[in-house]
């Protein structure tokens, strides 16, 4: 057995020993999801409750899910040591599940919810969309459905050119919408927000702090924009201003990096909370 395999087996044995120890020391059920049937409330059939609640039942489906989720979490973290079959298995599962999930969402939310609901409103009301308002069939919806079908021409030898038509619709719509959205939402509004008074008065009194902030803000934006302006060589005065722009951008990237780190660490603590609270029951439960 290679050294890597020995380490792998040791980790698995350590985990199993930990679980056995946890089971031996536990004074209350753990690793199970308990539910309580809800009466007189059609919105939910069961509700997750703590194991101490009288009349609870163990939910086999949710308990299986809990253990699977714990396995997937540990399998993902096993990659921190090195690539291994458990991580690869999890990776393969998430690829398939994600594709299936987005396919399902697209089908029910858009193909049924928008296309078929417009094309065959009465049939959809009687089948899957009972809350749909009565309307006449809109046969123009056949246009995007036909264009969508043309996408599959890509799979036919010699028919790839037909797939350009739906692609043209997607690219044209995106280009048109984004052009105005970005110019209006980002370009114009950011310039408008940067046009600030450089001398600020508060209650007829000169506000040094506000003035300094505004001057610093406007100057910083101009320095950054100078750095992004490549039609002039960055030498002399332009070079010095653009260098200040680099400093402002470095500060921006530093704060973005800090936020990224904080976000990832929050996710990490949430996963650890899942393992130690929801799965192992080492922390007080937070279910009602």
């Amino acid at each position: 057995m290679s050294r890597e395999s020995q380490i792998g087996v040791a980790i698995v044995l350590l985990l199993l020993s930990g679980l056995l120890l946890r089971a031996a020391l536990a004074d209350q059920p753990w690793g199970v999801v308990t539910v309580l049937p809800v009466e007189n409330d059609p919105a939910e059939a069961v509700r997750e409750v703590s194991p101490e609640t009288p009349g609870v039942q163990v939910s086999v489906a949710r308990t299986t899910g809990l253990w699977l989720a714990a396995f997937f979490t540990l399998a993902c973290y096993s990659y921190l040591y090195k690539d291994n079959p458990a991580y690869k298995l999890t990776e393969s599962i998430i690829v398939g599940v994600s594709a299936g999930y987005w396919l399902t969402a697209s089908f029910w939310d858009v193909i049924v919810g928008k296309a078929l609901a417009r094309l065959m409103p009465e049939q959809m009301r009687a089948w899957a969309l009972p809350n749909l308002d009565p309307a006449d069939p809109d046969f123009l919806t056949l246009v995007p459905l036909t264009l969508g079908a043309l996408l599959f021409a890509r799979l036919i030898p010699g028919g790839a050119w037909l797939a350009r038509w739906p692609l043209a619709l997607i690219v044209g719509t995106t280009a048109g919408l984004k052009l105005v959205l970005y110019l209006d939402g980002d370009f114009v509004s950011q310039i408008r927000n940067t046009i600030l008074p450089l001398v600020v008065f508060n209650d007829n009194a000169f506000d040094l702090d506000g003035s300094a902030r505004n001057i610093l803000l406007v100057t910083s934006v101009l320095c950054c924009l100078t750095y992004f302006y490549f039609s002039v060589e960055h030498r002399g005065a332009v070079g010095r201003v653009s260098r200040c722009g680099i400093w402002v951008l470095m500060i921006t990237f530093g704060s973005s990096f800090a936020f990224t780190v904080m976000g990832r660490i929050t996710l990490l603590t949430m996963r650890l909370e899942f393992l130690f609270r929801d799965w192992l029951g080492l922390l007080p439960p937070n279910v009602s």
Partner: peptide
């Protein structure tokens, strides 16, 4: 925009 959504949804089927 609605046509765009429908074609994009069918593109998801092609992707899968």
């Amino acid at each position: 925009e609605e046509w765009f959504l429908i074609v994009a949804a069918i593109a998801m089927v092609l992707g899968a």
